[in-house]
Structure formats: structure tokens, C-alpha cells
Design a protein around this nucleic acid. Structure first.
Length: 828
RNA sequence: GCCGAUGUGGCGGAAUUGGCAGACGCGGCGGUCUCAAAAACCGUUGGGUAUCCCCCAUGCCGGUUCGAGUCCGGCCAUCGGCACCA
């Protein structure tokens, strides 16, 4: 070998990992700056909530990201690979209520602990760019971005029905409602009307939908989920009129072609018209009772398809503008106020729900679409006909295919003033108010004279007060802190009070990837040049549980900020990798199941390199991964096997170089090395299949072991092979590789080495194995000259005994020859 | 109910463009070394069987093809998401 270097016989992972983590930190190996003329690569993993301890999901997420970052770096890219903390959130507040520890203290302590755990994994983060969303130098800019949204009309306040937990006496985020109950106290969640702040994400609904096609690097699963969430539908609003008052009652439908089949109209129980229609009539009491009963149902019961459709007549009628027919108005539990206009037209013949409802309450059914191949007969209908057909009983539209009717009725509605063409989205505006302490304050004040005013930018940040006493009242403590609550109006100087709601933590995580590009900027959220250099994120990696919320909000923010001229891209994440869960005994690791494997213990017992190697080897990244203690042992064994191999070569000088001429065994080893380089490169770069990349490296090691037994060995080749082996392992087992790299006599870090390039010439074998098939079944394998043409190959194969025997006495129908692979003889 | 994913040895998984099914690892079995064990190394390991020969085998049934884990049609199971969206 190059020179005798000191290498311990035993693989002392603990000492090695500590040593290199320190060394890399001291030489700032992973520090990165903008560099003109060098291709940038932004590799990002979803930042964690600082719960206190890393779990295996984190280990997997960050191991995957580190392979990508290290690989791209060795490929010559200027790689940005940052880490930070999604540090606001309810657990800190719960801890405060329970143990009296201030949220800030609890959070910072957790960050401390998790940072050191992350560092023990040896991930190539530029720690100088670390951000924590709960620190004023970060949330100042979260507040500032709120103001930009406010100024541009994208932040507004309105009264809304929100999830209210009576047990905790507080509002809950949607994600905290599990099966209609509070995740903390399991009380059934109620709806409560409160003044809340919203972001107008619906302004971007169409673009959020359309630009999904610009994201070929996203899993189609995630794109489909977002499509469904946005829920675009094309239809029309039809203005019915109240018979008595003439008041306009708009309904939304996607089937305006069936409007002549309307036999009743249904309002949502909360619809404001309900009270108007019934007050002072005989229907007042029973309908009110019905509405109350429906409202008391849990969200889950009300929106379940299992729930029986129930309704009640209001005693009033409306007129259908298309045919002036009088139809009864009902209230029913299956109509939702939040979607469309909160009122629907009932066309029982052509809608399943309407059909069931009409049958139950004996409402009339009228056929207005006839199928082409048969005729519907009212008395025989057991279900609605929802397919295409020809319009009937529809005045001027009779005989028209309903697909044309859709367009014509809509046009007529619009021209006659009876309605309008309408595109509806299921997506609602984003409710960002939280009645909590531990979040970014909403920078708004309420002046007695001037009303709601944004806090001037120069007064930011609105700071969270320290030393807050937490009582389990469930209300934001901010409300009870006069120093925070009371302020002066910057406009009139009069008394004002602050908004005490804080922002949803998803607001903080909607722009953190931008802050990483310029994390220490005290004058701006981020510098435009820096954000332009780094954005967008080339590879984003995280759990699929964020497929809708976080990823949609971050996309919305990026688009809005692009419209404000703050960033130059309209999509934040070019490529997305959604990693699978880490399972134990077939199910997700959880405390209640008692199947949690602690990363800290695994790292202590085997080292970070073994842990990383196992987690990358056990399954491809998108798939769920079954944890196996024996599998970890296997990875540990592999590293020891590599260690011993290289140790022996380094310390064993007796093998003599065979000289320049390569023996067949030398050629085989050299070919193995180069096929391994090719395979590992392709697996990382094109497929993210780290499991097969690692298995290829294992095969290389398995090939080196028998070579070591050979009498004649080419030491130059051995050195080349070992050097490349260490480099190939570097993204997976960084400390291990660094130590061996140095032991093999190299100066400098292995992580600064260029990624190896395979030689096409070295891949070529002189002789290759081809398969003989008879009628598609494998009958023999023979070695042939690699350079044979199809015709020569056919001849060579046909002449072997097995082929002759197979053909003997039979008729050869045809022979299929695939050079380099097989010859298939079809006989009869 | 709708949408999507997955289904391959005892286990995790591989087979990238339709071309040798089971790479690699775990586990098992046998051996070498050892007083012995561990570790390590070597060999072996889908099932059947007449045991270097053939048959069967990638959830099930059918199809296309010289050839199907891979493509097509129809089912089944598991997991995930959405779930009265008018």
C-alpha cells in the first residue's frame, strides 16, 4: 500500500465518530456560501418539532437527506444542507401547564438535546444556518410576512365556526381533532362561532391546482391528494326566488342540465334563510328543534355517509326560474353551509342522495334525462340515474344530449339573469388564529377609535412576554398580561389592545426554507440575491403526512411572496421524496405499543454509521421499513468486514505486485469495481435506491475477499479498488470512511473527493454467459465470446449438445437470438 | 362508497427497457479454527422429486407473446388517503 498508516485492528466506532464530528466542526467542512460559477444544489429535509428526542423516523429522514447532500457535493455541486426547529406548538404549552416549565425553557432544552443527538449522527449540516421559529429573530419575520399578506389583502378577519373543546375550554386546530374528539382530553369537539384571522389561500386555488403539472419530481400520490383537497368543480349558481318575499335563494349545482327535474330545495340547517322562512309560522318550533338536534351532532356523525339523511319541510316554497314551478323548501342534515351556497336543488331522478331523500319523504320524482339504450320508467326506478343521456321534460332543451345541455342551460341562466356560471373549490381559506400562547403573535392592534390596525413594521417583532404564569384555563395567557395586551395606538395615541391570538405553526414552517438562504439577516426576512441563488429547493424529503397541509401552505406562501416581488420562483420544492414509516413488529413505533427503538441507544451500541447503513439498506426510501435488531447486527458485521479487509491490506506487505499485465482474476476484480461504481452512482442519482447501492458495495467486498487468497495480486489494482470502495461508502457511513481514508494514507477529507467515474472499457468482459432456452425454458448456460454477432451467437449455441438433443427429431419453428443474453429455440 | 399503493422464499428485500426469478442481507444447516465456546472464514439454503434430470413456483383466474414478477382483462387481500362537496 501507499504507506504504512496507523490503523487499529478493532473498529472502534465510538472513538472514530466523536473524533471526526469534532474535526469536521473545527474545519467547518459543511459550511457553505453562494459561489458564482458553481452549480448550486439545495437539499432539504423537513425540520423537526423539538419534542426532546430523535425518533427512528427522523433518523431515516436525515440519513436519506445526508446521502443525497454528500453525494451531490462529491459530484461537484455547491450544496446547501441546513437544519432547524419547528419550535412553536402545543406540546410546549402542555408541558408548561403540567409541570410549570415555561414553554421557551422547555423548547430550548429540547432543541439542545436533539441538536446533540443529530450531531451524533454525523449529518453534513451547515449548523451556522440553524433557525428556530420560536426565536424573536425568526418570528419577527413571520410577523412581517403576515403584514405583507395583510397589505396585499390576503389576510383578513371574519367570524367562523371553529372546533371547540369543552373539556379544555379552548379552540383546537383541525389536526388536533381525532375522530371528532379532542386528542388531549377526548371530549367531543363542538363548533363555535369566533372572530378569526384567515389567509386567502383560495385566491390561489386555481394556480395551486394548475401548477401541479409543473412538478414532475413530485410523487403522483401527493399531487392527487392535493388535487382532491383543492376539489375544483365546474357548475352554475341558479337563483331560486322565495315565493312570498321574492328573496333570491342561490343554489350551486354541477348538473344544471337537470334543473327541470327539481322537485324540492334543501337548505343547510345553519342557513340564515331558515329562520326567516319559519318565524311566526306553525313550522317554527319543530324546525328549530330539528336544526338544534342536527347542530348537536358531532362533526364526524354529520359528515358520515352512513348517517341517515333527515330533513323537515319549512312550510315555504321557492320558484324555479327556468320553469316558474313552485317547489317546497326543506332543511336537511346532509347539506353543508360551508360548501357552495349552503343550499341545493333536489333532483331525485338523477342524484343518489336526492333519490334516497325523496323516497323517504315521499317527494315527487321527475325524469329529465333518458339513457340512450333503454328507457327509465319512474315506477321501476330503485336508484337515481346519474349517467349521460338525452334531456326530456325540459322545455326547449328536449332531445338535446345532456352534455350540451350543461353548456346551454348555463349560458341561458347567465343571459337571462337567472344565475351564473360558477367554479367552486372545496379548498377553504386558511384559518391561522390560535388561542394559544406559544406561537408567533399576530401583529395587529385594536384601537378604540381607529379600529384594527397593523403594527408598523419598524415596531416588529411583537414580542412574547417572558415569565408567563400558566394556568389550565385553556385560554391564551396573553389575554391576561396587561403589559402585552395594553398598548397605544400608533395613529391616534389613544389606548389600544393587542391581538392575543397567535399564528398557526404552519405559518412558521411555510417560509423556513427561504430563511435558510439568509438566516442571520437582521434587516430583511431574506436577501433577494441570496434567495434567488439558492431557490428553489432541489430535493425536499419528509413524511407523507405533510402531503396536503404543509406542502400546500408552503406552495401558497411561495406564490404570494413571488407576487410581492420577494422571491423569483413560484414553486418552492422542485423534487419531493416522501419517505415511508419505520415499523416494528408490523406497526408504527409508539409508546403505547411499547415497540419503540431508541436511536440514542442504537447509536451508543453500534455507532451512527451502522444505524444509518441499516436504515438505508433495509428498504427503499418511499416504502415502510421494518425494524430488525438482527438486521442492524448485519450492517455492523459488514462494516467490520470492510474494516478487517482494509486493515489486513494495510498491515500486510508480503503480497507482491504482479506487474502491469493483468491476469484474468485482475480483470475480473477491475470489472467488478467499475460495475459497482456504475451501479452505486445510478442507484443514488437516478432512483434513490440506497438499499441496492449498498448491496452492490457488499458484492464488491465479497469479491475482494477471495482475491486476497490469490498467490499473485496486483497491488496497484487493490489500492484503486480499496480507495474507491471507501469513497463509495462515504455518503452512507461518513465517519467510518473518513477514518479508513486517512488510514489508507490520504491527506484531506474523503468527503471532499470527487465521486468516482467508471470506465466503459473496464466494464466489458471478454466472455459472457448466455442462456439456451428451448420453448422459452432455460435448458443450459454457456460461456461465449462477448463480441459475437447475433448470427455467430446462434451458430455457437445451436452446436452445443443440449441444443442438438432438443432439436433432434423435431421441427425448428424459429430461433430468437438476443445478443448478450439468450438464444431461444422454438421446436415442435 | 371513491381514489391510490402494495402483494415475490422462514424474514427484510432484488430483478431498472418483456429475456437466467429470489441479487444483497437476516435466519437456518454443515464445515474449518478452538480444550471448548464466541467471533471470523468457507460451503449450503424456494418447494417437489426419480437429486447435477425434470416438474412446480412471484396473491387468485384468464389473455397477449418465442418468452410475463414485469403488459392487458377480471377478481381477492392488506395498508393508506378522501369520504353526503351538490
Amino acid at each position: 500500500m501507499r504507506r504504512l498508516a496507523k490503523v487499529q485492528e478493532r473498529y472502534d466506532f465510538s472513538g472514530i465518530e466523536k473524533k471526526w464530528q469534532q474535526n469536521w466542526g473545527q474545519q467547518s467542512l459543511y459550511k457553505v456560501e453562494e459561489r458564482a460559477g458553481k452549480q448550486k444544489y439545495y437539499c432539504l429535509e423537513m425540520f423537526p418539532y423539538p419534542s426532546g428526542n430523535l425518533h427512528m423516523g427522523h433518523v431515516r429522514n436525515y440519513s436519506i437527506g445526508d446521502v443525497v447532500a454528500r453525494f451531490k457535493s462529491m459530484r461537484g455541486y455547491n450544496v446547501l444542507h441546513p437544519m432547524g426547529w419547528d419550535a412553536f406548538g402545543l406540546p410546549a404549552e402542555n408541558a408548561a401547564i403540567k409541570n410549570g416549565i415555561p414553554p421557551a425553557k422547555w423548547t430550548i432544552a429540547n432543541i439542545h438535546n436533539m441538536r446533540s443527538q443529530l450531531k451524533s449522527m454525523g449529518i453534513s449540516y451547515d449548523w451556522d444556518r440553524e433557525v428556530a421559529t420560536c426565536l424573536p429573530d425568526y418570528y419577527k419575520w413571520t410577523e412581517w410576512l403576515f403584514l405583507q399578506l395583510y397589505k396585499n389583502g390576503l389576510a383578513y378577519k371574519k367570524k367562523a365556526h371553529v372546533n371547540w373543546c369543552p373539556g379544555c375550554a379552548t379552540v383546537l386546530a383541525n389536526e388536533q381533532v381525532v375522530d371528532g374528539a379532542c386528542e388531549r382530553c377526548e371530549s367531543i369537539v363542538e363548533k363555535k362561532a369566533l372572530e378569526q384571522w384567515f389567509f386567502r389561500i383560495t385566491d390561489y386555488a386555481q394556480e395551486l391546482l394548475d401548477s401541479l403539472v409543473d412538478l414532475p419530481g413530485w410523487p403522483s400520490k401527493v399531487k392527487t391528494m392535493q388535487e382532491n383537497w383543492i376539489g375544483r368543480s365546474e357548475g352554475a349558481e341558479i337563483y331560486f326566488r322565495a315565493e312570498k318575499t321574492g328573496e333570491r335563494v342561490p343554489v350551486y349545482t354541477t348538473r344544471q342540465d337537470t334543473a327541470f327535474g327539481v322537485t324540492y330545495l334543501v337548505l343547510a340547517p345553519e342557513h340564515p334563510l331558515v329562520e326567516k322562512l319559519i318565524s311566526g309560522t306553525a313550522y317554527e318550533k319543530p324546525v328549530r328543534e330539528f336544526v338544534k338536534r342536527v347542530q348537536q351532532m358531532t362533526e364526524i356523525d354529520r359528515t358520515s355517509t352512513e348517517t341517515e339523511k333527515e330533513g323537515m319541510f319549512t312550510g315555504s316554497y321557492v320558484l324555479n326560474p327556468l320553469n316558474n314551478e313552485k317547489v317546497p323548501v326543506w332543511v336537511a342534515n346532509y347539506v353543508l353551509l360551508e360548501y357552495g351556497t349552503g343550499a341545493v336543488m333536489g333532483v331525485p331522478a338523477h342524484d343518489e342522495r336526492d333519490f334516497a331523500f325523496a323516497k323517504k319523504y315521499k317527494l315527487p320524482i321527475r325524469i329529465v334525462i333518458q339513457p340512450l339504450e333503454r328507457e327509465l320508467v319512474l315506477e321501476e326506478m330503485t336508484t337515481a340515474y346519474t349517467e349521460e343521456g338525452i334531456m326530456v321534460n325540459s322545455a326547449d332543451y328536449n332531445g338535446l344530449p345532456n352534455t350540451q345541455g350543461l353548456v346551454k342551460v348555463a349560458a341561458h341562466l347567465e343571459s337571462a339573469g337567472f344565475g351564473k356560471i360558477k367554479i367552486n373549490f372545496r379548498l377553504r381559506d386558511w384559518l391561522i388564529s390560535r388561542q394559544r400562547f406559544w406561537g408567533a403573535p399576530i401583529p395587529i392592534i385594536y384601537c378604540e377609535k381607529c379600529g384594527a390596525l397593523p403594527v408598523p413594521e419598524e415596531d416588529l417583532p411583537v414580542m412574547l412576554p417572558p415569565d408567563v404564569e400558566f394556568k389550565p384555563t385553556g385560554e391564551s395567557p396573553l389575554k391576561y398580561i396587561p403589559e402585552f395586551l395594553n398598548t397605544k395606538c400608533h395613529k391616534c395615541g389613544g389606548p389600544a389592545r393587542r391581538e392575543t391570538d397567535t399564528m398557526d405553526t404552519f405559518v412558521c414552517s411555510s417560509w423556513y426554507f427561504l430563511r435558510y438562504t439568509d438566516p442571520k439577516n437582521t434587516g430583511e426576512a431574506f436577501n433577494r440575491d441570496k434567495v434567488d441563488y439558492w431557490m428553489n429547493v432541489d430535493q425536499y424529503i419528509g413524511g407523507v403526512e405533510h402531503a396536503i397541509l404543509h406542502l400546500m401552505y408552503a406552495r401558497f406562501f411561495t406564490k404570494a411572496l413571488a407576487d410581492f416581488g420577494l422571491v423569483g420562483v413560484r414553486e418552492p420544492f422542485q423534487n419531493l421524496l416522501t419517505q415511508g414509516m419505520v415499523l416494528k413488529d408490523g406497526s408504527k413505533m409508539s409508546k403505547s405499543k411499547g415497540n419503540v427503538v431508541s436511536p440514542e441507544e442504537i447509536i451508543k451500541k453500534y455507532g451512527a454509521d451502522t444505524a444509518r447503513l441499516f436504515i438505508l439498506f433495509a428498504a427503499p426510501p418511499e416504502r415502510d421499513l421494518e425494524w430488525s435488531d438482527q438486521g442492524v447486527e448485519g450492517s455492523y458485521r459488514f462494516l467490520n468486514r470492510v474494516w478487517r479487509l482494509i486493515y489486513n491490506y494495510i498491515n500486510d506487505g508480503k503480497k507482491i505486485n504482479t506487474g502491469a499485465e493483468l491476469t484474468p482474476a485482475d480483470k475480473d476484480l477491475r470489472r467488478l469495481l467499475h460495475t459497482t461504481i456504475k451501479k452505486v452512482t445510478d442507484d443514488i442519482e437516478q432512483r434513490f435506491n440506497f438499499n441496492t447501492a449498498i448491496s452492490a458495495i457488499m458484492e464488491l467486498v465479497n469479491g475482494l475477499y477471495p482475491y486476497r487468497e490469490k498467490e499473485r495480486q496486483n497491488m496497484a489494482l487493490v489500492q484503486e479498488t480499496i480507495d474507491n470502495l471507501i469513497i463509495l461508502l462515504a455518503p452512507f457511513a461518513p465517519h467510518f470512511s473518513e477514518e479508513l481514508w486517512q488510514a489508507a494514507g490520504h491527506e484531506g477529507s474523503v468527503h471532499l473527493m470527487p465521486w468516482p467515474v467508471y470506465s466503459e472499457e473496464a466494464l466489458a468482459a471478454d466472455v459472457i454467459e448466455v442462456v439456451l432456452q428451448i420453448n422459452g425454458k432455460v435448458r443450459d448456460r454457456i460461456m461465449v465470446d462477448a463480441c459475437l454477432t447475433a448470427e455467430e451467437l446462434k451458430e455457437a449455441v445451436m452446436s452445443i449438445d443440449k441444443a442438438k438433443a432438443a432439436i433432434d427429431g423435431k421441427q425448428v419453428i424459429k430461433v430468437i437470438t438476443v445478443p448478450g443474453k439468450l438464444v431461444n429455440i422454438v421446436v415442435r
